[in-house]
Write a protein that binds this DNA or RNA. Sequence first.
DNA 1: GCGTTAGTGATAATCGTTTTCATGTTACTC
DNA 2: GAGTAACATGAAAACGATTATCACTAACGC
Lengths: 129, 129
Amino acid sequence: MSTERRSTRQRAALIEALGTSLRFRSAQEIHADLRDAGSPIGLATVYRNLQNLAADGEVDQVRAEDGEVRYRACGSGHHHHHLVCRGCGRTIELTAPDVERWSEALGAEHGFTNVQHTLEVTGTCARCS
Amino acid sequence: MSTERRSTRQRAALIEALGTSLRFRSAQEIHADLRDAGSPIGLATVYRNLQNLAADGEVDQVRAEDGEVRYRACGSGHHHHHLVCRGCGRTIELTAPDVERWSEALGAEHGFTNVQHTLEVTGTCARCS
DNA sequence: GCGTTAGTGATAATCGTTTTCATGTTACTC
DNA sequence: GAGTAACATGAAAACGATTATCACTAACGC
């Protein structure tokens, strides 16, 4: 997966910006933050690099309810899900082995192969309510 | 929920078009189908009515991987999930009581209130593989 | 029928994202 | 170091789904 990528200033800045945040953020948000932080970078470059990083499994992406894609550096390279606060965006990583097994079994039961699933949990965290 | 809606030819045609399909379809797809079927209807009207129907709980909407929203008339008015074929779009409704309970408990455990979740399963059905 | 009011639809506007393409950088070789 | 091929960048334009606008039409209650 980890196709070889050249190391550029922009890519490094992006990775750093991702590393310091625990929230899921949109490409536009990240772009603005980088600009504000004094790292001039093109919007297209942000999009491209985020896609690369996602393809290489170095960041997670989720699609918000409004259709926007949000990104976040995730600890484990393993498959996992998220519990995201709708207020502040605070995110807790989850593993759900039962769900994994359940969806597998379910696919098989209906003759489906190559089964994947998406599962995201949202709520209002203690601080925000 | 079911805000009172006036009955118009366009709304009726839309509901009928939805009723005859088992697949999730995009607003654009449905619009094209209606046009082809000889039911002139504006694209904006399709969008508006689909949103109304979704708000009234008469159709389900899911967001595809490319960000497009797809609609489908669903049998039960109850909360449920879907197993969707990535090839032909054939859809099977699922209930997952374990997942419901799991996400509830999880939210509580982390101090989250008003917990919701999205869960969609995709795969390749027997016919398509 | 009549008036009120929601619904319609062609079109323009929005907005996130992708593409284009000329230019700048990187990694590699000699 | 200099040369260079391939990749990366970024400003601007293109794209595509969706939403807003607004003049016009049709439902509904009387």
